[in-house]
Design a protein around this nucleic acid. Structure first.
Length: 566
RNA sequence: UGCCCCAUGGUGUAAUGGUAACACAUCGGUUUUUGGUACCGCCAUUCAAGGUUCGAGUCCUUGUGGGGUAACCA
């Protein structure tokens, strides 16, 4: 049982490129061996599975090397951001099981310091106020092959710049009339270095600072500086910020007063097929009521996955499986589904629920009798024990589990053939009743009284190929079941230039049915997860009450019969 | 068009100059009172061409392909 430590180390040897970098820094005692990362969401929407990956990367690397992680809301644009998102984001991170260091931080906490530093840059002649329109400035920016030209305002005096900047701050100007720009190099091959904007005027109240400010810092100016203020050692972000790194470094180098400097590293964001991963598009789905909300179980949001029945562990395992690298990737949703199945297979108690019921009458079973049978709660975890399930003369089975005639490949119930009822008896179908339209309404069967499951009799040990789940007609209860399919029919819904992503919405992504479930489920609580045996994993929805059970389908079981039967 | 990044099975991720591994998917099989789980097997000489080396997926050069980038968004 006790493995040698060296063995474990060998197994874990493989490191992603960020881990390699951090191990190198630790070895070189770069920050005295300290690691502090940050997760910097903008509070303008809910977190999705892509953020979950980023959370696992930033929190994960710190955790692995004995460091900490700050949660910092990047709230530099009051026009787009709202306080309600702050709470949702905190809840999602906590639910995943990560703990941020101290209180949550806000970029807006640093507005004063940022303003002071901006004044310092003006005084050092490294920033100036530009009073042109954005069109004029865009024109002067040049193109990738031709250098830009200087703004006529570039040579304004320090005094004039300082005066204008203060008046901008005080709200004396309209939006769009002035901006503060860094004075770097209008001929730089990296367009981001051609005198980038640091501040713009926004006359909108901020969710935390109210109407104190009329100027707000741009991302590039605020981010590295916030990292510097907090003492972040490794600032991990996605690939599209790679080209911003020289600017990130230029800003920090020009304001810092010591040897310390945070390092930005970039990794590829997560893409999943059959969904969209843009907050703007997810917001559209919510606002146009194409889903029921940010936590609709079809949404790739963390709150949606939670309501769908995903576990924190399954999401963390998923992030671990897909890895961290620099190349663009698209992960098959099947990988995500696999991680939740893996977790739930080990943890979810098994119960019986019939989703599409058809009645079976056991002709030789006593009318009115209820026999309570023992049923194992999990084949994967003995400690979950047993429960009682009621067996009666009339039961329901799944409609698709019966055919009058079928070939040998069909292991389920057919006329004159035997099948085992899970936890109960072996039965044989003898006849059917049909309505005028030839639809089967009732199946008649006989049972073998000596074949009771677990009894150990010769009859019970008989080899029968098929085993069906079932519930008692009189003792079962109704439950609303919400069956979900993928939200989009296209693998890459936002990859078509001609078509809007919403054209690919799957009209059948939600199906609501009423199922018959075993009576033990009456006791279940919201968020309880189960395997409905042979059907899949289901979770009690928040809408579920003692009087009306509601379950969401998390994911189906792997089904090799469904594939063959096609 | 400039600059930056990337290139390993169908999809992802490893191999840190020394026998291309793992996960998912697919297909086939064994076990099974869930057509589940578990287990086994099939599936790539690493974008191309040169070079360095006893030895290259790994280092160098060139090419090709993909992505990013020129918001008063982050």
């Amino acid at each position: 049982m006790d493995k040698p430590i060296s063995n474990e180390n060998e197994e874990k040897k493989s490191l992603n490129f960020i881990e390699q970098l951090v191990e190198k820094e630790i070895k070189e005692e770069k920050h005295n061996g300290k690691i502090l990362t940050r997760f910097p969401p903008e509070p303008n929407g809910y977190l999705h599975i892509g953020h979950a990956k980023a959370i696992c990367v930033s929190f994960g690397i710190a955790k692995k090397y004995g460091g900490k992680t700050n949660l910092r809301f990047d709230d530099t644009n009051p026009a787009k951001e709202e306080a309600r998102y702050v709470d949702a984001i905190k809840e999602d991170i906590k639910w995943l099981g990560f703990e941020w260091e101290g209180e949550p931080k806000f970029t807006s906490d640093y507005f004063d310091q940022l303003y002071t530093w901006a004044c310092d840059l003006i005084k050092k002649d490294k920033a100036y106020i530009d009073s042109q329109s954005s069109e004029e400035m865009a024109k002067q920016k040049g193109t990738p092959t031709t250098p830009g030209t200087h703004s006529p305002n570039r040579s304004r005096s320090v005094e004039e710049n300082l005066d204008l900047f203060e008046r901008m701050k005080n709200g004396e100007f309209e939006e769009g009339t002035h901006v503060l720009r860094a004075k770097i190099d209008m001929a730089h091959s990296n367009m981001h270095m051609r005198d980038p904007l640091m501040y713009r005027i926004i006359n909108a109240p901020h969710h935390r600072t109210g109407d104190k400010w009329h100027i707000y810092p741009m991302y590039d100016w605020a981010h590295g500086e916030s990292d510097y203020i907090e003492g972040i050692t490794n600032s991990l972000c996605s690939l599209e910020f790679e080209i911003h790194r020289p600017l990130y470094e230029w800003f920090v180098e020009n304001i810092k007063s010591d040897m310390y400097q945070p390092l930005q590293s970039e990794f590829a964001r997560l893409n999943l097929n059959y969904t969209v991963m843009s907050k703007r598009k997810l917001l559209q789905l919510v606002e146009e009521n194409l889903v029921t909300g940010w936590d609709d179980p079809r949404m790739p949001t963390i709150s949606g996955l939670r309501r769908r029945g995903y576990t924190p562990k399954s999401i963390i395992d998923f992030a671990d499986t897909i890895g961290v690298a620099k190349r663009n990737n698209t992960i098959d949703v099947a990988v995500l589904e696999n991680s939740v199945r893996n977790d739930l297979n080990k943890t979810a108690p098994r119960v019986m629920a019939v989703l599409d019921p058809i009645k079976v009458v056991i002709d030789n079973f006593t009318e009115g009798e209820v026999e309570w049978l023992d049923a194992e709660n999990s084949q994967e975890d003995e400690s979950l024990g047993f429960r009682k399930v009621p067996f009666t003369k009339e039961i329901y089975i799944e409609r698709e589990d019966f055919r009058e005639q079928a070939n040998k490949k069909f292991f389920r119930l057919k006329l004159d053939k035997e099948v085992r009822l899970k936890n109960a008896y072996i039965i044989k179908a003898v006849s059917v009743e049909k309505d005028e339209e030839e639809n089967i309404t009732v199946i008649h069967a006989t049972y073998d009284p000596k074949s009771k499951s677990g009894s150990g009799t010769e009859e019970s040990l008989r080899k029968v190929k098929g085993t069906l789940h079932w519930v008692s007609v009189s003792e079962s209860v109704d439950a609303e079941i919400r069956l979900y399919d993928r939200l989009f029919m296209n693998e890459n819904p936002d990859g078509d230039k001609e078509k809007d992503f919403k054209e690919f919405l799957n009209p059948d992504s939600l199906e609501v049915i009423t199922a018959k479930v075993e009576p033990s489920l009456k006791e279940c609580k919201s968020q309880d997860r189960f395997q409905f045996q042979r059907m899949g994993y289901f979770v009690a929805d928040n809408d579920s009450t003692a009087n009306k059970l509601v379950f969401n389908k998390t994911v189906g079981l792997r089904d090799s019969w469904a594939k063959k039967d096609k």
